[in-house]
Amino acid sequence: MLTYSIRRVAYSIPVLLIASFLLFVFVRTTFDPTARLAASRDPQVRIREQQRLGLDDPLATQYGRWLKGAAQGDFGKSEVTRDEVSKTIRRGMGNTLQLILIGAAVSCVIALAVGVYSAVRQYSALDYTFTGLSYIGVAMPPFWFGLIAIQFFAVRHHWLLSLGLHSGDSQGFDLDYLRHLPLPIATLCVQIVASWSRYERASMLDALNADYVRTARAKGLRPRKVILKHALRNALIPFVTVVALDFGALFGGLIITEQIFSIGGMGRVFFSAIQQGDAYVLEAWMLVAAVLIIFFNLVADLLYGVLDPRIRLS
């Protein structure tokens, strides 16, 4: 298991380097940090600024300099807002991590519960209900769902709140926070819960029909133990893969969710950086996204090793 883990971690380093190089090149070739000086009367102003920022160096040199800074958490200053880029990112990440981690956890729990139930009670009334709901969930645009949910739960009934994650001077984990969370989390997760539960249902059905489940029953184990120990343990292995792959989708979904609920997270940082052509923020944002996605893939790989002894040893 140790060699397996070390190898997995080692693999992700070149992946991260390649990803960071590509995203750096994409941003540098499409956004010029000095674009706002294009209208300046004196063309020398822009050239001087480009020299000051080192934009006339070869791309590789620029990349090296940027990567060195990034490794120390220094992404420079935004040419648009004059703020430290790292500060902007850190502020965004705070809210975003809350949404993503709580969202992913809630989604996993619901999808596993629904998937296992639907597989064990295949073709029951509830299984059909879940199937119907998941089709609706997958087909429905999340932003539309978010707006309808706000209209019903926040505007008409005032049960939940729909602006930001905190109101007034409330902070941390309190009732106010709990009233803010459900709507954005639901909007962010409705699609992945729908698809994950379908996936878990399918892999659980596979496991339940497997020979080792028959063996477990022939031993005289109770159905609960057969299902939750022998079948679920195997059905978790493919589930972990989808969860890891969908993390990217979750990150992308933030852009819509944070916009609808006015949450100052990474989604909004991205949105405004694109709109204002804020190259340094964009670079930093994409690097953080890449690190996050690679990190969760790594976690999935390691979980794989924990769950499946055949992978661990190969």
Binding site: Y212, A218, K219, G220, H230, R233, N234, D308, P309
Partner: peptide, 21 residues
């Protein structure tokens, strides 16, 4: 009764044994 009074040996032990335990 299962496994205690009447026990069963299945055909393909590769699939009949649980791979993760």
């Amino acid at each position: 009764i299962r496994g205690e009074q009447i026990a069963m040996v299945f055909q393909d032990a590769l699939t009949a044994l649980n791979p993760v335990f």
